[in-house]
């Protein structure tokens, strides 16, 4: 892994952040799949419910809110699962060309991405119901992961700035 913009054959911080978000969307799907097979899993806390909680708490809060609203409207876990996974897939496909390729576009994309993650972190600090339902531990883990994502995106931009400076000096 290397921080910066467009390093050849290396994963950047922003790209890793996108992948973390995609993996977070897969975790709730695993729980839903397990519950559909073994309904008694809902009667107690288990590894899959912990993964669900961490996955949901890592997703952007506005997405969580949207998923909850969809769940209330459709009363369908299947719709919920496919929406979360579909969103993760579309996000991954859209983010890939934005974060790599044209340098200016990649820098702007990273700045926009960083602002969105920062806004999400601020929302997480508000005393709202959606920030407390899953308990303190998953929420703190989700916050730390998102904070890590923000730091990685900023490190990308900082590394790029240094590289540009070096090139200008040379």
């Amino acid at each position: 892994m290397k921080f910066g913009i467009n390093p050849i054959r290396k994963l950047t911080g922003a790209e890793l952040s996108v992948r973390i978000l995609q993996i977070a969307a897969i975790l709730p799907a695993v729980y839903m799949f397990m519950v559909s097979g073994y309904h008694s899993l809902v009667t107690r806390q288990n590894l899959f419910s912990v993964l669900f909680n961490v996955g949901i708490c890592t997703l952007p809060k506005l997405e969580t809110l949207g998923l909850s609203a969809l769940y209330r409207l459709a009363l369908s876990e299947v719709a919920l699962c496919f929406t979360a996974l579909g969103f993760a897939l579309v996000f991954g496909l859209v983010a890939k060309p934005l974060l790599r390729g044209d340098h200016k576009r990649a820098v702007i994309s990273r700045i926009v991405f960083a602002v969105l993650v920062f806004a999400d972190l601020i929302i997480r600090l508000l005393p709202l119901k959606m920030n407390t339902v899953f308990g303190i531990v998953p929420e703190v883990i989700g916050f730390m992961i998102r904070l890590g994502c923000l730091v990685m995106i900023i490190l990308d931009l900082v590394a790029d700035k240094r590289e540009q400076k070096k090139e200008a000096e040379a």
Binding site: Q22, S36, F82, G92
Partner: peptide, 27 residues
Amino acid sequence: MRETKFSVNAVVLIAIIFSAISFFFTI
């Protein structure tokens, strides 16, 4: 970490297909 051809996008796509098949059987 080297960039591999088997991306997370592919994993998500497999998860969607796998979920569709499994939900069909379980529900």
